[in-house]
Design a protein around this nucleic acid. Structure first.
Lengths: 183, 183
DNA sequence: AACACATGTTAAGATAACATAACAAGAGAG
DNA sequence: CTCTCTTGTTATGTTATCTTAACATGTGTT
């Protein structure tokens, strides 16, 4: 019985994510290119993501195999329904998360977007749906929702909690507030 | 001018994260082992994370090089101050995120933990601090905070918004609520 | 002392992403 | 028609993680 606690193998769910950060961005790039310039070629994707043509070529061939991307006879790329659906999901998650970080938590726009970008492809559908509900509620304009939002925006830079831990930190046994030093 | 929009190279901040998902878990494993059984050897870490001894040996030698882990003459592992600090940060982020998902958003415990585990090492300090404040506020017991929480817990499974988009979805131009299909 | 088991290290191979660079193929310029 | 530029593909190398398997070492038992 060497194994005392078991993180077991669960922490590696991360790797087995069907949707990689990089895959998500290839799909979204195709999406955006088609919206913004009407079409997407491999070179356009490479430029938008600032990766080499070689990397793009390899990535796209996998995406074609997986049935997420196709191309027409002139090598114009497009997303299949499945690819399109995935891209949209990730875009929505990005919108939700950055909205939450920026407009609810009051984090700086750059940091909000950076964090959202890192997590956009990791949010489960369940959490995504719940987050939509939550944000709808907060932005419903109701009295106490406004109160919360204004409270968050004025109380910049909270403090660590003291000896009797606050209701948030109490179950953990120590204050969860990170030290204020920057990154 | 092939480059129309620029995600530029910003989306790859993800990769350049000093703290990898796997590094975070090696550090936390050492931490937990020391707490729970008083010491941590490589084999214990391997067992806890369900990875091979080989992988663990390689990972640990990198962590030693980076000055995050050391070992005593009997090969008992311990974290340096820096390693310990990193581990604690990630643990706190996990606690925060899972608390948010489960107790605020009302997501199932498994899903909450899985999502938190994927994102724990990605949350910026800025967002982490803000999230602490926000949760402190929500759990402060104040009148309208209770209202919000109870509202979230009864309105399970919200709906897509209709023609005049709700204040949340309006800036995006489409409803952000994902389809209710599982996964 | 000799063998075996537990633990740690090292080697070789896999996968996912990237880079660079060489090669291929089509399109327009002359 | 040939030359060149653009675009895409392929070959090779790198980094980070993981696996399996072979090797090394120490400790305890007989």
């Amino acid at each position: 019985m060497t194994q005392i606690t078991n993180d077991s193998t669960y922490w590696r769910a991360f790797d087995k994510n069907q949707l990689t950060h990089s895959v998500a961005h290839y799909l979204m790039a195709i999406n955006r290119l088609r919206e913004e310039q009407g079409y997407a070629r491999a070179i356009d994707v490479a430029n938008m993501l600032s990766v080499s043509r070689g990397a793009t070529s390899l990535a796209l061939s996998q995406l074609k195999e997986r049935g997420l991307v196709k191309e027409d006879p002139n090598r114009i790329l497009f997303l299949t329904d499945e690819g399109s659906h995935l891209a949209q999901t990730v875009e929505h998650n990005f919108a939700l998360l950055s909205r939450f970080f920026e407009d609810v938590l009051g984090v700086s726009p750059e940091s909000a977007r950076a964090d959202a970008c890192k997590m956009e492809h990791l949010l489960s559908k369940e959490s995504s749906r719940a987050l939509v509900q939550f944000l709808q509620l907060l932005f419903s304009g109701k009295h106490c929702m406004k109160e919360i939002l204004s409270e968050m925006h004025k109380t910049k830079g909270g403090d660590a909690c003291q000896k009797p831990l606050c209701p948030l930190c109490e179950p953990v046994g120590e204050c969860l507030m990170p030290p204020s030093a920057e990154h």
